[in-house]
Design a protein around this nucleic acid. Structure first.
Lengths: 350, 350
DNA sequence: TGTTAGCACTCTATCTTTATGAGTGCTAAA
DNA sequence: TTTAGCACTCATAAAGATAGAGTGCTAACA
């Protein structure tokens, strides 16, 4: 109840629901006549007008100008998503497409991520992003120092989530391939199966002692291992289907497209958009200003995390106009989140 | 000389040059008055009009409509690029920016590629693409089979250009980590330093004989090695700075933007755009229809290949409107091509 | 007290009309 | 060969006219 004494009731909820549904479908402000005609409330347009005035009072809808219909406000969408929207099962076609994608054997994590993103954007008609498995949660599996030329080598680090990192290092003149082999095997023996914290706190000294004389590039290797855990300077997220949202009338303004594109080209920004705070399995919906980013005030994001076993390792999400089909998108994200988790599970526990 | 007996002469060349320069700068059709005023030809507008009519006859310029100035045709740009344009040295600022980028030590090939692309798009104000070092030209360096769980492992292949490929494979129940070690070292010993052709033709049988009993996953490993050479299913090209070209008035039409974006999101398409036919070091300019792709009739591409030693391993390029600043862009591409080649050289020969 | 018909009013979007002016091609004179 | 002069074209912008969707308010009604 607000200061005018207006409170939400069932009919207002029906009207709000009608407004949101119709606006999502048509992208046009919704008038009282339309609501009565299409949604059969059994009352007159005048009554609906009164309700709409109340809904505006409550902050759920707004008028672009005096003689236009109403469009939902961010708050209206929020109410809709939380209370009004009815869940929508995937169509057989959608489900089939997803299942088919994940039934084939996983050859390469990167490829699974990419295909997931493509499918997601195709099904939701939004821009899709997929955060690759993050090493923060995974454990060290294997390290290998591969000599390339006299003076440099590649350090390869494999995590137990199947991700592989590599980087180039310089070698002191004196180092032989055999030395590299030694270092590789000591590191492997000592670090196997550990997470970053343990590596950091417990074992560094021990390794140092064992590898006296190779400290220089043990340092470099450790630096890489550390980077691997924090995923520095890597391709962390898949982004695709951006052109989909250009179909939406709200993006017929090139300035907006430009702002959006330059945002999406910055990987750190994508990461922060995808970073899921709560690790519950649930699907998260952020609407307009809730995203808390000035360049995408008129967009919503639907995100969810995926797991390997019981570890949350990454997340998937879509970005679309606030006027997106929430019911459909939420259903798809949830389904894909589960499918992706299962597929990865099968790889690692299978 | 064409069927009307009109031939190119110096004054026509000056007029054409003025039209192209002015149109590049303003994006507006260029009229006879403007040319006389800005480019001081020392003749009257009427004279210039006659010349322009001739240039139209020759197919170098065209009129958007009867009472507008002229704009260059693809053929006009071509003539400009081939004969009229004067080379433009990089500004100190540009050169400094590029040099600074490449003076720091290379840690990771992927990162160099990415920074190269970012710099390229920033300097040219076009969309930039960089084809990563292709393995077709490189030689096998190292393979490593890393067990992840009981039933699967990661095959890692390192090429002598410093690129690393990996993929997951299933293992038969019976295989032990020690077996993997054996296979790794046999493959390493046999394949070291060879290019694909040699591996294919000469050695497969030999390896089979040596690894009787492990044929199944030797097959898988060989498949990956093969894929590594052809770079299948991998992130082959960096793309960035697409938002830059939205500043150009020719892209104020959202339909065009959409067409372009959906093209650029397809990696195979990017590859075919970047694939350089002639491996000469020269910078290649393709204008409008010369690109031979219906979705980018109104764009030009400037590309060049880069090398490691004397092997061409990849290429860089930009995509912009046909109305791009060719002189500047060509200068930048050429400079960056050399800088990138040198930087990679330093890594591999240093 | 809640609902509805009626009506005047507002505002946008669209269409038409009307300048305006940049730029041309042609002709005839220099 | 060059140029001044002039009639002509066409896109763009501004101004006005019209239509229509939708509103809020008032008064009557159940």
């Amino acid at each position: 109840m607000n200061r005018f004494g207006v409170i939400m009731d069932d009919r207002k909820r029906m009207v709000l629901s009608a407004i949101v549904n119709d606006y999502i479908a048509t992208a046009e402000p919704v008038g009282s006549r339309t609501i009565v005609r299409k949604y059969k409330l059994g009352v007159s347009p005048a009554t609906v007008r009164n309700e709409m005035a109340d809904l505006e009072e409550l902050g759920y809808v707004q008028q672009p100008h005096t003689s236009a219909g109403r469009i939902p406000s961010d708050r209206g969408y929020r109410y809709y998503v939380d209370y009004l929207m009815q869940q929508r099962e995937l169509t057989g076609e959608e489900a089939a497409l997803i299942c088919k994608e994940y039934e084939s054997k996983v050859k390469d994590i990167g490829q699974v991520i990419q295909r997931t993103g493509q499918l997601l954007s195709q099904l939701t008609q939004c821009a899709a992003m997929v955060l690759k498995p993050q090493s923060g949660m995974s454990a060290f599996k294997h390290i290998q120092l591969v000599p390339i030329f006299q003076s440099n080598a590649i350090v390869i680090v494999v995590m137990d989530t199947g991700t592989v990192h590599n980087r180039m290092i310089d070698l002191p003149e004196s180092v032989t391939p055999a030395d590299l082999e030694t270092v590789s095997s000591v590191l492997n023996a000592k670090l196997q199966g550990l997470t970053m914290e343990k590596i950091k706190l417990v074992l560094i000294k021990e390794i140092y002692n064992e590898l006296v004389g190779h400290r220089h590039f043990v340092d470099l290797a450790m630096e890489l291992i550390q980077d691997s855990f924090s995923l520095k300077s890597e391709d962390k997220v898949y982004l695709g289907g951006v052109f989909n949202i250009l179909n939406q009338p709200e993006f017929h303004n090139v300035e907006k497209v430009k702002t959006l594109l330059s945002l999406l080209e910055q990987e750190e920004q994508l990461c922060s958009l995808l970073a899921v705070k709560e690790n519950t399995g649930a699907v998260t919906v952020r609407i307009g200003g809730e995203i808390n980013h000035k360049d995408i005030q008129e967009c919503s994001m639907v995100t969810a995390s995926y797991q390997v076993g019981d570890r949350v390792v990454g997340s998937i999400g879509v970005l679309g106009p606030t006027r997106m089909e929430y019911a459909k998108v939420i259903g798809i994200i949830d389904f894909m989140r589960k499918s992706l988790s299962q597929a990865l599970e099968r790889v690692f526990q299978g």
